[in-house]
């Protein structure tokens, strides 16, 4: 189905997530690169050597979660916008997701937005914790949101709530 819709199945998604034990310790990258294409900026960008592609740039990236600091540099460098940062260490109740979001206007800290699934469907409301767009991100802003922990694997996008309805 993925080849027909571009929507990864829950099993495919789960396979790309580091184990919960690691996510519970703090920020870590999730590399949702599901097919071999000639591309390696994530490996080049990572200052910790946590992403491995190797000699053949068509290889899919492998995340060494123990080396990943969750800094998010790769998130802004991935041409496929296929990387997000996840973190469940802050509270019992919530997961924090940092997503690339190349749309205007950017949400602001404190806003409530809609959290959307990989097929663009509404999952839940989410609180915006930060929305960063410094020059070094090269116009790929990173929006950090807070969602109930049970939606950790479901949320992959946001939509602003249209105040006019």
């Amino acid at each position: 189905m993925f080849e027909k819709t571009g929507i990864a199945s829950p099993e495919m998604v789960l396979e790309k997530f580091p184990p919960l034990s690691r996510i519970n310790k703090g920020k870590v990258a999730v590399l949702e690169c599901y097919r071999r294409i000639p591309c390696n900026p994530c490996e080049t960008a990572c200052p910790f050597g946590a992403i491995e592609i190797g000699e053949d740039i068509n290889n899919m990236p492998i995340l060494h979660a123990d080396k990943c600091s969750g800094c998010g540099i790769c998130l802004t460098r991935c041409p496929g916008l296929a990387i997000m940062i996840v973190d469940t260490s802050a509270s019992e109740e919530y997961a924090e997701l940092t997503l690339p979001y190349e749309f205007r206007p950017l949400p602001k800290k404190g806003d409530t937005v809609f959290a959307l699934s990989r097929s663009g469907e509404f999952v839940c409301e989410a609180l915006v914790l930060s929305a960063l767009n410094p020059k070094s991100f090269d116009r790929t802003p990173a929006v950090r949101i807070r969602v109930p922990k049970k939606h950790l694997y479901d949320v992959r996008n946001i939509a602003l709530i249209d105040k006019e309805g």
């Binding site: 993925f2 819709t5 296929a82």
Partner: peptide, 24 residues
Amino acid sequence: APKIGGYLVHASKVARMGVPIKTS
């Protein structure tokens, strides 16, 4: 075509905006 021809990372970008991709 029965399958998406472009890179699937690009397809996922539009899919999560809620745009249906109708192959075939």
